[in-house]
Design a protein around this nucleic acid. Structure first.
Length: 233
DNA sequence: TGAATGATTTACT
DNA sequence: GTAAATCATTCAA
C-alpha cells in the first residue's frame, strides 16, 4: 500500500528511521521499478548546519522543503549527480530525508540499463548488483529520478513509497515481498534491524556532522559505505 | 556577471 | 590511498 501524507508529516528523524525497509516505487514508461530502502539520512532544518535549509535559507532550490510534507526534493551536486529526498515535518519546517541506498526488487533489466551495466542482472556478481544502487547518486540514475521529480507529490504521483504490504495487513511473518535482490535465501524482516551513524560527506558542518542522523539496515549488503559506527536503534 | 563549491562517483596509483 | 569529472546553485560584486 502506498504511504500517505501522515507518514511524512512527522519529525524528520522518525521518518528517516521508518523509511528503512519501505519500498520506493517509480512507475515509468519503461515499466515499474521497485527497491527496498536500506539507507537514509535526516536533514533537520534551520539549525542543522549540514542542511541546505540551514539558517532558514529559502531559495528556488530549497523552496519545496518549506511546503507541505510528502513531496519530493531533488537537487544536483558535483556537476553530475541527482539526490532524492522526501520532505517531512509540518509545512514551514524545511526538513528532508535523503535516500542513500536501496535493494532492487523489480525492474532489474531497466535498472541495470539505466546504470550502463555491461551484463544482465542474472549474470552479475553480488558486488556488481550492489554497485547499481548503493549510493544517493546511483539510485537516482538507476530509478530515473532527476529534476523532473522536483516538487512531485508522493501521495498521488508516479514516484512514491510503499509499505510493502498488499492490503494493509502485515506481510507473511518475516519475509519481504518479492525475491531478495541478492538472490540469497536471506529473509527480510518486516521490522529490519536499524543501525545509525554520522552522516556522509558533511564534514563542513561542525558538531552537526557528528550527530547520528544516518540510518541503515544492519543486514543489507546494499548499504553505501562505512559501517564503522554501529549504534543500535 | 563571475567565482566558488558541493548531502558523489569513478578511475587510477 | 588520491584525484578528476562537471555544472547548477549560491553569493558577492
Amino acid at each position: 500500500m502506498r504511504l500517505t501524507r501522515d507518514f511524512y508529516a512527522r519529525p524528520v528523524l522518525v521518518v528517516a528511521r521508518d523509511c528503512i525497509g519501505k519500498v520506493l516505487v517509480h512507475e515509468t514508461p519503461a515499466g515499474r521499478l521497485r527497491g527496498r530502502i536500506v539507507e537514509t539520512e535526516a536533514y533537520a532544518g534551520p539549525e542543522d548546519r549540514a542542511a541546505h535549509s540551514y539558517g532558514g535559507r529559502r531559495t528556488a532550490r530549497t523552496e519545496v522543503m518549506y511546503g507541505p510534507p510528502g513531496h519530493v526534493y531533488v537537487f544536483f551536486v558535483y556537476g553530475m549527480h541527482w539526490n532524492f529526498n522526501l520532505v517531512t515535518g509540518r509545512a514551514g519546517e524545511p526538513q528532508a530525508v535523503l535516500v542513500r541506498a536501496l535493494e532492487p526488487l523489480e525492474g532489474f533489466a531497466e535498472i541495470a540499463r539505466r546504470r550502463g551495466a555491461s551484463k544482465p542482472w542474472e549474470r552479475m556478481s553480488m558486488r556488481e548488483r550492489c554497485a547499481l544502487t548503493n549510493g544517493p547518486g546511483k539510485l537516482c540514475q538507476a530509478f530515473g529520478i532527476d529534476r523532473a521529480a522536483y516538487g512531485a507529490d508522493l501521495e498521488t504521483g508516479p514516484l512514491y513509497l510503499d509499505d510493502g504490504t498488499f492490503d494493509g495487513s502485515a506481510l507473511d511473518a518475516g519475509a519481504s515481498q518479492g525475491t531478495a535482490a541478492d538472490g540469497s535465501a536471506l529473509t527480510r524482516r518486516s521490522k529490519p534491524r536499524v543501525s545509525r551513524s554520522a552522516r556522509i560527506g558533511v564534514d563542513y558542518a561542525g558538531e552537526w556532522a557528528l550527530k547520528p542522523y544516518r540510518f541503515y539496515d544492519a543486514e543489507s549488503a546494499f548499504v553505501s559505505v562505512s559501517r564503522a559506527t554501529r549504534d543500535r536503534v
